[in-house]
Design a protein around this nucleic acid. Structure first.
Lengths: 91, 91
DNA sequence: TTAACAATTAACTTAATTGTTAATTGTACT
DNA sequence: AGTACAATTAACAATTAAGTTAATTGTTAA
């Protein structure tokens, strides 16, 4: 379910924007929300989709839940695309 | 609309399988259909999504419409992922 | 022109996704 | 305990997506 989950998670502009935000470093759910016009509940569900895809990790610190980027699962996409593009290694 | 269209198109297992089939070379719609259990109409719609994303190109030869892979739009995804992974060029 | 075939488009159904508001969970503080 | 705050989950409405069958568009050949 890895590649499917990852690509599905990336196929939404808000979720991609969340990932871009997290590029700068870990951020609380509230801080992430403040960058969007949709409600906190909507953002929270986007976060859970990203978490299911293992594109982000979370940990609680007191009242806050911090999210951080996990780019390791993106390797699988890179690999898939590279293979599709023709295995130029064989050339 | 480029990246969004591309990722949305890739976020479906049948569409990814179609692209993988086309890796071997151009193929008619009928040949593509024969690899799947869904109806020809369903495959045709998948093909149109892939075409809108410019992941495939088509041309008619007599009764047949041949599809072939276009991997150039995948560069955009590679770039986006690379940027997300941290712009290691700056290191 | 008519028949036959390849493929797409149309109309419709069902399932999944996205968003909202309201209720719930978890933590800190007095 | 009780209040306040951060964040998630639940329940529902609306949109989008994917599948089916039936009808339509192109093309070839009799």
């Amino acid at each position: 379910m890895g590649l499917q989950n990852t690509l599905r998670a990336l196929a939404d502009p808000i979720r991609r924007e969340i990932l871009s935000l997290l590029k700068a470093g870990p951020m609380s759910a509230g801080d992430i929300c403040s960058h969007f016009t949709v409600t906190a509940a909507a953002v929270s569900r986007h976060l859970s989709v990203l978490r299911e895809a293992d594109l982000i990790r979370d940990h609680r610190e007191g009242k806050f839940i911090y999210y951080e980027l996990n780019t390791s699962v993106l390797e699988e996409i890179m690999l898939w695309i590279t293979e599709l593009k023709g295995d130029k290694d064989d050339a």
